[in-house]
């Protein structure tokens, strides 16, 4: 491996570590004002939805909302299982089975 790649990997490691660590180190030291705490409490649902929506609906850069989007169709029963069973493993299992089934059918 060329030495410049080692420098690249070290650079990537540093710039990735900084945003992962600094808020944890700084914010855990202070009493945070209530309004910021309230704001931070909305981060998990907001960020999960922001990650999930493009993951399911965007395929190769395009928004696809038709039945051709297997992930979109598979998510509907997956969401129902998640709501009624509240079980991660079962939800993942149903999701994967739906994708296999849809690939077979379509």
């Amino acid at each position: 491996m060329d030495g410049k790649y080692l420098i690249m990997i070290i650079g990537m490691a540093i710039v990735t570590f900084i945003p992962r660590y600094i808020p944890l180190a700084v914010l855990s030291k202070f009493e945070i004002p209530d309004i910021i705490v309230d704001w931070l409490r909305f981060i998990p649902p907001a960020i999960l939805a922001a990650l999930l929506a493009p993951g399911i609906l965007i395929i190769e850069g395009k928004l696809i909302l038709t039945a051709q989007n297997i992930f979109l169709i598979a998510s509907l029963p997956t969401i129902l299982v998640a709501i009624y069973k509240k079980n991660i493993f079962l939800t993942v299992l149903v999701g994967m089975s739906m994708v296999i089934l849809l690939e077979y059918l379509l």
Binding site: P45, L48, A49, L51, L52, G55, I56, I70, F71, A74, S75, T78, I79, A82, I83, K86, N87, I88, T91, V92, V94, G95, M96, S97, M98, V99, I100, E103
Partner: peptide, 16 residues
């Protein structure tokens, strides 16, 4: 692509 759906399905469960 069933394996590619593992993480989206996990995110669905966690979001719920």
């Amino acid at each position: 692509s069933a394996l590619d759906f593992v993480l989206p399905a996990m995110f669905i469960a966690l979001l719920v």
